[in-house]
């Protein structure tokens, strides 16, 4: 019985691991911390798995636990500087046709998002994942109106970071 559950969980997580990797990309700066946070999220997901009744999609449920772990439960072990090697893998721009202006712009944007606070990052993450404000509000525990207001403030913050 437990074996079945383990197998089922790991298979589902394997299929949906991109979500966790994306959260890790946003919240950590080097490969070690990335793996560290990935592991912590995996442990939290596994601990919560028996309570997952399939009321929502596995992926929706994952967003919540992954973000909760990143904002509330995870403590960065050390302040680290991004390594060249990690940066080139995680922040390589995926513009289809090579466009130097666009690439430069994207690079600056990624850097700006990295400088935001934990909660702001969570909002941006859900926004980038194309979640609507209702879902963003529900995940964070604020009202929909407030989620909109907050997102607008974040846009202004990003503007200030980009054009000091």
């Amino acid at each position: 019985m437990t074996k079945d559950l383990e197998h089922q969980f790991v298979t589902e997580l394997e299929c949906n691991q991109n979500i966790v990797h994306k959260v890790c990309t946003l919240y950590t700066n080097d490969r070690d911390s990335h793996n560290d946070l990935f592991q912590e999220i995996t442990i939290q997901l596994w601990k919560a798995y028996p309570k997952f009744r399939g009321e929502s999609k596995f992926s929706t449920w994952m967003y919540r636990v992954a973000l909760n772990t990143a904002i509330t439960l995870y403590r960065k072990s050390k302040k680290s500087i991004p390594t060249q090697d990690y940066e080139s893998v995680m922040f390589k721009i995926t513009a289809d046709e090579y466009d130097p202006t666009e690439e430069q712009q994207l690079k600056l944007m990624y850097n700006a998002v990295k400088q935001l606070g934990d909660v702001d990052k969570a909002l941006v993450f859900l926004y980038l994942e194309d979640k609507d404000y209702r879902e963003i509000a529900e995940t964070l525990g604020i009202s929909e109106v407030n989620a909109r207001v907050k997102m607008n403030r974040i846009k202004n913050k990003l503007k200030t970071i980009l054009n000091p």
Partner: peptide
């Protein structure tokens, strides 16, 4: 931000 969103969603292959 829209540009970032588009790029973000194409990221899957690099993860």
């Amino acid at each position: 931000l829209e540009l970032l969103k588009r790029d973000w969603q194409k990221k899957d292959k690099q993860l």
